[in-house]
Design a protein around this nucleic acid. Structure first.
Length: 880
RNA sequence: GGGCGCGUAGCUCAGUGGGAGAGCACUCGCCUUACAAGCGAGGGGUCGCAGGUUCGAAACCUGCCGCGCCCACCA
């Protein structure tokens, strides 16, 4: 096979007719990408006069490799940035990666685990060094994947959440928030992962319905006894009260008294609290302030002591028979002990209830009283909500804004300290006498005996929240920041609307004095398999983007993803669809090959409208509509619709009709052929530009061969030329296509081979203004002109007053033809009946808009005309 | 428990007030000199169910059934 690159014209580009018959993406993609980067097309210039367009990439975690979800996310961003580049914007797409604190630390700890080592064996410094090594390896792989995808990112501006600049930004904003009293340290109930041994924020906790056991336990004895229900019997060791609702008549006499807590000998008070739901269980709640967030609040209201009964690994620390038991061992042990005392009143099993799990390791979270750092989200979340409410930030699709509001309007304070080693260390120092000093980026930490820095690091999302401006050099007022902030659009999945988007809004508005981090949030869905199922390793339906890129090309992979991407909706993909996308790329390849073999040109202006034949005018008119539709759909982030419009224009209009119609013109030669070469070149030129944002590689390869220009990457985006919209030509072509299709249908029904010539007389073409196209119609329908011995043996009634009489002596299948005509007659009759019924309806004629009524009348007339011709054709048919 | 969304062809989905569509799959016929990763033709749907609004409903309203997602401190 001859590859496109093996034969080249003297200027180094492949010659058109030397393109191979099949597109081979591998070599093209590698060569194209190197060209783009070395030419600097992706490097943004803050001093440019062009209007700015900027996107910061949602930084992938350094730990992983890019999965198909990233491929979708990147495809959308790359499509937008390439579109804007062509539209004349100064585009910055800023790449980078996230240090992904807990996730990365887990990965490296697992690696150490295989060598029977723990992070403590290495010590903090050596461990962090080890993580940096891992980051270098893993991160490099991700950058390679981005190149394979074709990401037009500005590689000169690549950032990492742990690099010096971003660490400085983290420290700066921490200090500012601290000084503004929006960061505080407090002892609170937090979500604790007993495996990762760290605090978690609310969003790092996933809830799931687990089977448990609801047990009713009698506290106290005799008349003063009270029964409480719990799913977590082991926490009773830490109970410091029983709570009932103040209005609950059953327990009113007990409020203010004390009961003995079984197994402990302690006496605890019975308190009245509004929080208790009298209708649930027994209406009495055991209160464990140190191990339940509700109970903690009840405890605060009633000044109850908090008894911590488990350590950080959720092992019981209360001296006695249960000491040293894990929480799940302690639970049955305690239930057994209570049962022996006859205190178990009822057991309900299984009992479904929601349990929180660590989003990283799936271990059940243990609510735990702990001293941690928090962000006071009140004013920040308010501002984040208002920015969307007042329209400064648009969320696409708008329906997802409701979820956003539900989140920011009910946000709890954000626990930001993590008991990890990998991350930004909290810039707070503690003095020997209890001093607390928050250290800014340009300040020296306090020196002297006894001072030590906080051991904890910040939640990963703390630095992620600064991403839109920290990557541009904040806190300095850099040219990039002046020029490219706020970013134009944030492209990400709806799954991290809360994790990330809401936090960027909070910190962006705060740090940038009320200027939002982005103007638009364009949310896409999750990639799913061909049956709409979630991709998961255990299900075996995971698609590796590199695998598809290797086998079908990056363009095919991107087109498959973009074809399913509408705002907020999930994107189903399958290998068959990727093959279809590959076929589409190949179709473009061959269309261009045809054009080049036939001398299509793109030089100079197009011939005037008046000089062109109807077919040329038609395809140019269609092109204008396509450009308008593509613009409209891009503006709404409806990539699936963009792809649909271009797919059908390219395949149906250009390839199946225009190219076929142009063949007889081109082979005839003369000035009309010259015009067609110009129009064909122009249409392909424009089509390749329109497709370039979505499928950059094949379009650039073809466009440069076609136009002899440098690259389509920085070519101008097509605009609508209203002068080229030609309704008359479009109507003509619709009529022409109808005639051709009708004849083809006849031929197919009759089992005629494509090469088999049939003589035919065409009449009535003038009725629909296509008499000038008779030669074309004969060419496409493979009809010969009637000779001297012509005798019509079959008649085709084409809607619109066109009749085709065919001489099919010796070939016609009378039964097939009769069946076809009967079928047509049935359809026409049904149509006529429907139209008459409508027109007989006085209410319809009276109330429906005039054009609607007129349309029905036209349809009726057409149906009646069809019926007449079909009747005549049936009559003329030889009897079997 | 609260909220959001979805049920249209075998599959995945467009269509949101006036003739039921696409891709893939399927059937038939073709190597017709750009492309068999192709070309031509075709079959296939009481638009989840039941009411209502309207001259007219797949679309708007109400209820029901089924499915999915998000949020969630009733022990």
């Amino acid at each position: 096979m001859t590859d496109a690159t093996e034969t080249r014209t003297p200027d180094g580009r492949p010659a058109g007719s030397d393109l191979s018959a099949q597109y081979q993406p591998g070599e093209v993609e590698q060569r194209r990408y190197e060209t783009w980067v070395s030419a600097g097309y992706f490097t943004a210039d803050p001093k440019s006069d062009k209007p700015p367009f900027s996107i910061v990439i949602p930084p992938p975690n350094v730990t992983g490799s890019l999965h198909i979800g990233h491929a979708l996310d990147h495809t959308i961003q790359d499509t937008l940035t390439r579109l804007k580049r062509m539209q004349g914007y100064e585009v910055l797409w800023l790449p980078g990666m996230d240090h992904a604190g807990i996730a990365t630390q887990n990965v490296v700890e697992r690696q150490l685990g295989s060598q029977r080592l723990s992070r403590h064996d290495l010590g903090r410094e050596a461990f962090v060094e080890r993580v940096w090594q891992w980051k270098a390896e893993s991160g490099g792989a991700i950058l390679g994947q981005m190149r394979r995808l074709g990401d037009s990112v500005d590689w000169t501006r690549e950032r990492f959440t742990m690099d010096d600049g971003l660490s400085r930004a983290v420290q700066t904003i921490f200090k500012r928030l601290y000084d503004d009293e929006l960061i505080y340290r407090a002892e609170r109930i937090i979500n604790w992962c007993p495996r990762c041994l760290t605090a978690l924020s609310d969003i790092e906790v996933e809830h799931s319905e687990d089977d448990g056991e609801l047990i009713s336990i009698r506290y106290g004895d005799g008349a003063m006894a009270i029964v409480v229900a719990t799913t977590r019997a082991e926490t009773m060791l830490g109970d410091t009260a029983v709570a009932v609702h103040p209005d609950d008549e059953r327990y009113r006499h007990l409020v203010g008294t004390e009961v003995e807590l079984p197994l402990t000998g302690r006496r605890i008070p019975i308190v009245a609290d509004e929080h208790v739901d009298p209708s649930f269980g027994t209406g009495a709640v055991k209160v464990t302030p140190a191990h339940d967030p509700n109970d903690f609040e009840i405890g605060q209201r009633h000044h109850l002591p908090s008894l911590t009964i488990m350590d950080e690994r959720a092992v019981v620390t209360v001296p006695g028979p249960f000491e040293g038991l894990d929480r799940y061992e302690a639970r049955p042990a305690i239930v057994d002990a209570l049962r022996e005392q006859g205190r178990i009143v009822a057991e309900k099993r299984p009992y479904q209830h929601a349990v929180g799990h660590c989003s990283r390791c799936k271990t059940a979270v243990e609510p735990r009283l702990s001293l941690q750092w928090f962000v006071d989200t009140g004013p920040l979340a308010k501002a984040a909500g208002d920015a969307v409410r007042d329209g400064r930030v648009a969320i696409e699709p708008v329906e997802l804004a409701k979820r956003y509001f539900a989140w920011v309007d009910n946000m709890h304070d954000w626990c930001i300290s993590r008991q990890l080693w990998w991350g930004h260390r909290i810039p707070v120092w503690y003095g020997p006498d209890g001093e607390v000093v928050c250290v800014g980026p340009d300040e020296q930490p306090p020196a002297g005996e006894g001072w030590r820095q906080d051991e904890d690091v910040l939640d990963t999302w703390f630095s992620s929240a600064l991403w839109p401006f920290s990557t541009m050099g904040w806190p300095e007022r850099t040219p990039d920041l002046e020029r490219f902030y706020p970013t134009s659009v944030l492209v990400t999945g709806y799954d991290i609307l809360f994790f990330w988007v809401a936090r960027m809004m909070m910190f962006g508005l705060y740090a940038m004095d009320g200027v939002q981090p982005f103007n638009v949030v364009a949310l896409h869905g999750m990639v799913r398999d061909g049956h709409g199922k979630k991709m998961s390793k255990s299900f075996g339906n995971v698609v590796d983007p590199l695998d598809w890129i290797d086998r079908y090309g990056a363009d095919a992979t991107r087109f498959t993803l973009a074809r399913g991407a509408n705002p907020g909706s999930d994107v189903p993909i399958s290998e068959e669809w990727c093959q279809g996308s590959r076929n589409f790329c190949n179709k473009l390849w061959n269309a261009t090959r045809f054009a080049l073999m036939n001398g299509a040109t793109v030089a100079g202006d197009l011939p005037a409208e008046s000089e062109l034949n109807a077919v040329d005018r038609w395809i140019l008119s269609r092109l204008q509509h396509v450009v308008a539709e593509v613009d409209e759909h891009f503006a709404g982030y409806e990539f699936a619709k963009v792809c649909d419009v271009l797919y059908h224009f390219a395949w149906d209009d250009v390839c199946d009709w225009y190219v076929e119609l142009s063949k007889p013109v081109l082979s005839a030669g003369g000035p009309e052929a010259d015009n067609t070469r110009r129009v064909l070149g122009h249409v392909l030129d424009q089509l390749l530009r329109l497709l370039h944002p979505v499928i950059p590689f094949v379009t650039d390869e073809l466009w440069t061969v076609l136009t002899r220009a440098e690259t389509v990457t920085i070519a101008a985006w097509p605009t609508v030329d209203p002068a080229r919209i030609d309704d008359a030509a479009e109507e003509e072509l619709v009529a022409l296509q109808k005639v051709v299709t009708e004849v083809r249908r006849f031929r197919s029904d009759q089992g005629l081979r494509p090469g088999q010539r049939v003589s035919a007389a065409l009449t009535g073409l003038g009725n629909v203004g296509i008499d000038v196209h008779e030669t074309l119609i004969r060419s496409l329908a493979r009809l010969d002109a009637p000779g001297p011995e012509f005798a019509a043996t079959a008649t085709l009634a084409v809607t619109g007053g066109v009749t085709v009489d065919l001489d099919t002596r010796g070939t016609i299948d009378v039964a097939a033809e009769r069946a076809r005509l009967l079928k047509d007659r049935a359809a026409a009759e049904k149509e006529a009946v429907q139209c008459r019924a409508k027109l007989d309806n006085a209410a319809f004629v009276g109330k429906a808009p005039e054009p609607v009524v007129a349309k029905i009348k036209d349809r009726l007339a057409a149906a009646e005309a069809d019926l007449a011709r079909i009747a005549a054709a049936l009559e003329a048919l030889p009897s079997a």
